[in-house]
Structure formats: structure tokens, C-alpha cells
Design a protein around this nucleic acid. Structure first.
Lengths: 234, 234
DNA sequence: CGACATTAAATTGTTGACACTTTACACTCG
DNA sequence: CGAGTGTAAAGTGTCAACAATTTAATGTCG
């Protein structure tokens, strides 16, 4: 047994700091829309809001830059990152690969008590889909994906996936599904669960990958029609 | 056409800053081994080395934390991140998924002038493998993987993949292959190129994924034998 | 001699001030 | 009246000093 692998770690004591706190707070301000996308962040103003000096604020912003939530232009300022459709498409691709890998892992290491919750979510989503109730469907859909990633048991994967999903929230056009797309989407979910349940990693990868890719295409189609509407208006 | 999409962007002017510069420099200090893994970074000392104050250094370290190269413990200091074998295994898994996705993309959008360089690298690696010349094989191997990822044409994917590879350099035990593993590794490369050339995305994914996974297993086997050697010594 | 409390040194955390750059605005000139 | 120039304000970049915390060292008591 290695001596460096301590049995009990006591680093919980004071495991937060002002910059970390500010980072979380600014992050939620961005994701909640309290800071408008593309807009500039005023360090003085932000520091004044929190009643602290600019130092910790600047440190927090550096972290947020690395997380892909803001952009730092030297001598210009910090801007809330705005994603164009091309970047969103790329992100969806990577998200598809990561989610596919999660399902692949899960199919390979099936344990009891994993399929049951998935089936339960599936049923609930089916109900919401039948009612065309997007507001009910959306959080279930999110939980379904996150559950699969989480249960895959790879912490690095979970972190990367969630980081990507977080960044995708910067794109405020595609969070909507309409009509019977909900039911189509949930049919894909069912295929994913089936592949996992049967312990078929490759099928789990493919169905999961395709599911996210279809989501991308739905988003893209919607985005194109939005752009056309924009054109007509001009 | 949107008015915000400028035809020519002049943001190159002053596109760097002191914290960014320090970030790059500290990063290379870590990756070159000039800062020992697990060790603590002294802000005063580091700032003095560069002839700057602690502010910019702290900002650079915040970025490096988000990149996964250092760890920040409040009131304790900044430590060069040290990876245990479990984390390395997880990272290899995600790397396999990302690399697999890259090959999958490349197989789907085959353009001229992609296979030729791959085949050239393949031949060079074969030669190096026959000669058991690891020092020659290693950079070729790296270039081979990076080329596939790059040519996949997804910038987000490239960034994530390279970030992960960078973090993996923190683990200083597994960069060695011995004996005929070089030839085995290159046979896997050949299968990857074949799948890409035939335009078979799924096969490209699988062969590429498996290739990295095999690398992980080789690393793991070596790591176990090292641990045993360690035990015997104790 | 070892465990514990106490004190001093070292290090991180935060701040306010100052220098520099960018941006906005008013002014001048064609 | 519009393009261009110069100036003032606003904002970012950097620093050095101070506060708070942790770590190391010293001394004390059982």
C-alpha cells in the first residue's frame, strides 16, 4: 500500500474562498440571464455589488473564462460569451460522443437499481409528452441524461459533460421542442434504455449518440427557420 | 446578413496579457517538470522569479486550476496536481471516447489529402517499431493521434482532447512502451486508418476507441508491476 | 522524553492607490 | 454638415501594503 494514499482526508475545513464564492455567484448570474449574453462585465460595478475589491472578482472571472462562460479581451474587458450556431453544433457533437460513451459504460457494468429509475423517468416523460407539456418534460429529460452520465461511474466524464451542458446554456434559442417532437424524443430514450438493459455497449453508444445528434438537427432546423423569419422581418 | 458578423476582425492587437503569459510559462514549467508534481507553489517566490507582483500570478493560477493542472486549497496554497491511477484510468476512458469520435467524424467526411499523410506516418512508425526505437516512435504516435483529431474539423473536440492529453502528462509513469508493444500499437493504427479510408464511421469509432483502451490496459499492467516492485523493495 | 500549549515566522487573502489603455465626447476644420 | 482630431472620463492592469491564516519553532509541563 502506498504511503501517499491517505485513508482519511481532512481538507473539508474551509474548503471555500471568496473567489470561488464569487465564481459561483457570477456563474448563476450569467446562466439565469441576470447578465445579458454578449454584454460586458464592469469589474468596478460587480465588485461594488458584492462589497469586495476587484482582486477576487478578477480571479473569479479568470476561472469562468477557462470554463468557457466569459471571454477576456485584454484592456477591453470581460464579456459574457456568446455562441454562434457553428459552435453550438460542434458542442452538440462532443456532447453526443460523451453521452454515448456514458451509455456505453453503463451498458457494460450493469448493476441492480439502475434500470428501474430509468424506466420510471421514461414513463413520466411519456405522460408529459402525450400532454404536450414541455415544462414538465424538460426537467425530466435533463434528469434522464444526467442520471445516465452520473451512473456511468466516471467522474472525469461527468465533469466534462456537465461543463459542456453548462456552456450550451449560453445559447438561448434551442431549448424548445414543439408538438410531437417530445414523443419522438422519448422513443429514442426507450431505445437507449433497452440497449443498456440488454448490456449491449455498442448499441447503447449508437442509440445515445444518435439521440443527441437528432436533438442537434431539431435545433438546427428550428434555428434555420428562425433565421428565415429574421430575414423576412428585415 | 447580420451586422454583427464583421468581415475582418482586428482583435489581434494586444491579444495577450501578463496573466496569460504567466499562465503559459507556469504551465510549461509544470509540464517540463521544473515544478515537481504534488509540490507546492510559492506565490511570492514565483512572482519574484518573473519580476512581477502576486496579482497577475494569482490570476494565472486560477486559470491553471480550471485547466486541471493545479489544485487550490484555500489558505493553504497552490499545489501541482498529482493524479492517482484511478483518475488516469477515467481520463483514458474519456480520451478514448473523444478520439473515437474524432475518427468517426473523419470517416464520415473524407476529403482528399487526409489518408496520404496518415499512411506516411503509419510507415514511419512501422519502421521505428521494427527498430524498437521508442524515442522515434513516440512523437510520431502523438502526431498521428493529434492529426486525426485536428482533421476531424471540430474545434471544441480538439480543445477538449488536447486539454485532456495535457492533464495526462501529469502522470509520469506510463509514457513507456517496451518490446513489441510498439508493433502491436501500430497494427491498431493501421486498422483505424483502414476504417477511415473505407468511410465506415462506426468501425472508425470502435477501432480508435479500442486502441486507446488497449493503451490504458498496457499502462495499467505496467503500473501494477511497478507497484509490485515497490512492494518488494519495501 | 513526549505531548501540548505558546509564540514567531512565513504565506496566503484582500484592499486601495496609481499607471496605462480604451472609449466617449466635444471641438475644429474642410 | 460630416470627417477627423484632441481631450476628458471611464475602465482595466499592476503594484505594494496591510490583515488574516497557517505553519514552524520554541518552550513548558506531565
Amino acid at each position: 500500500m502506498s504511503s501517499s494514499s491517505a485513508a482519511h482526508d481532512v481538507s473539508f475545513l474551509r474548503l471555500t474562498s471568496l473567489p470561488m464564492l464569487l465564481e459561483r455567484e457570477i456563474e448563476s448570474m450569467i446562466l439565469d440571464g441576470r447578465l445579458s449574453i454578449g454584454g460586458r462585465i464592469n469589474e468596478n460595478q460587480l465588485a461594488a455589488t458584492f462589497g469586495v475589491s476587484r482582486g477576487p472578482v478578477r480571479e473569479a472571472l479568470r476561472s469562468l473564462e477557462a470554463l468557457g462562460l466569459v471571454e477576456l479581451l485584454p484592456n477591453r474587458g470581460v464579456f459574457i460569451r456568446s455562441l454562434d450556431i457553428a459552435q453550438v453544433v460542434e458542442m452538440y457533437g462532443v456532447r453526443a460522443a460523451l453521452f454515448g460513451y456514458a451509455a456505453q459504460l453503463l451498458a457494460g457494468r450493469m448493476e441492480a437499481g439502475v434500470v428501474a429509475p430509468l424506466r420510471a423517468m421514461l414513463d413520466e416523460m411519456a405522460e408529459a409528452a402525450r400532454a404536450h407539456d414541455f415544462d414538465r418534460y424538460y426537467p425530466l429529460n435533463f434528469a434522464f441524461h444526467d442520471f445516465i452520465v452520473e451512473q456511468a461511474g466516471n467522474g472525469v466524464l461527468t465533469a466534462q459533460y456537465r461543463g459542456l451542458v453548462k456552456q450550451l446554456r449560453l445559447y438561448r434559442a434551442g431549448n424548445l421542442m414543439t408538438g410531437n417532437t417530445l414523443e419522438l424524443s422519448n422513443e429514442e430514450h426507450a431505445r437507449i434504455v433497452a440497449a443498456i438493459e440488454q448490456g449491449d455497449p455498442l448499441a447503447a453508444y449508437q442509440t445515445s449518440f444518435d439521440h443527441v445528434e437528432r436533438g442537434k438537427e431539431r435545433l438546427l432546423a428550428r434555428s434555420v427557420s428562425l433565421a428565415h423569419a429574421e430575414e423576412r422581418r428585415a
